Computed example of a mutant assay.
Amino acid sequence: MGTWNTGPFDNDDAAELLDDIREGHIYFDELLPDVGHRYIAADQGAMIVAMAHLAAGSVPEGIDDSQLESLRTPQNRERLRQCLEAVISDGTVSELAGQWAESGQDKLLEWKAQSHVQLI
């Protein structure tokens, strides 16, 4: 995964997700994993972080809020909240958290702070 910073859209997987949304080729239900105890791969974790921020209202240029309606349903917001919690927990559950942990404690904490968002 190409990463250039700790923000929710600062990686190749999130950039591809945003491009797909702009082009209208996205089905959020297919991208959201089922909630449960399993290992989350880094690419899926990056998309979960990006989708959580989109659902919470952080919308990059070129994306219209209407394109995010299905992501913002109460059911999907709850799925995202639980998935995001798993992604930023630790490397035993999330490959992405494990990769950030390898970057050092300061970078890990910065990434977690940038990735966390309230999904009420």
Score class of each variant (00 low, 15 high):
H53Q: 11
H37P: 05
V49K: 05
A42Q: 05
A55L: 05
Q105K: 13
T6W: 08
D13W: 00
R38D: 14
Q75P: 00
L80S: 08
H116A: 14
A41T: 12
V93W: 13
E61H: 14
P8D: 03
A55K: 08
Q99P: 00
Q105A: 13
G98A: 04
A97D: 03
D19T: 12
Q99Y: 05
L96W: 13
L119I: 10
E61K: 15
A42D: 08
E85A: 15
Q82I: 11
T3W: 12
H116E: 06
N5I: 00
L80K: 04
D12L: 11
L109F: 04
Q114F: 07
R77T: 10
L71Q: 06
D20A: 14
S89I: 00
D12Q: 14
T3I: 08
F9K: 05
T73A: 02
T3R: 15
D10V: 00
A41R: 15
A101P: 07
I63H: 05
K107P: 00
Q105L: 11
A14W: 09
L96R: 12
M47A: 10
R38K: 04
F28N: 11
A55C: 14
R79Y: 00
G24C: 06
D13S: 13
E23F: 07
A113G: 01
E61V: 10
L119P: 04
S66G: 06
W4L: 04
I26V: 15
D65N: 14
C83N: 15
G98R: 01
A56C: 09
T92M: 12
L31N: 09
D29R: 15
A42H: 03
L71W: 04
N11K: 01
F28Q: 09
S103N: 11
D106G: 02
V117T: 15
I21Q: 13
S94Q: 03
E23R: 12
E16C: 02
D29S: 13
A86H: 10
N76S: 00
L54Q: 08
Y27I: 10
G24A: 02
D90Q: 07
D34M: 14
L31W: 15
V35T: 10
S115I: 03
N11D: 12
E69M: 03
E102H: 12
E16Y: 03
A42T: 05
G36F: 02
A86K: 13
A42N: 01
G91M: 09
I48C: 08
S115W: 07
W111V: 04
R22D: 07
D19Y: 02
A14G: 07
L54E: 10
A97F: 05
P8Q: 07
A46P: 08
V49C: 11
W100H: 14
E61F: 08
Q75H: 11
E23P: 00
G104E: 09
E85H: 08
V59G: 14
P74E: 12
V35N: 08
L18M: 13
D65C: 04
E95G: 14
D12V: 01
H37I: 03
A55E: 10
P8G: 05
L31H: 14
Q75T: 07
F28T: 09
P8V: 03
R79E: 02
A56K: 04
P33I: 15
G45S: 02
W100E: 11
A14Q: 07
Y39A: 05
R72A: 01
G7W: 12
I40N: 06
I40P: 08
A113W: 01
D64M: 05
N5E: 02
S70Y: 06
I40A: 06
D19N: 10
M1V: 09
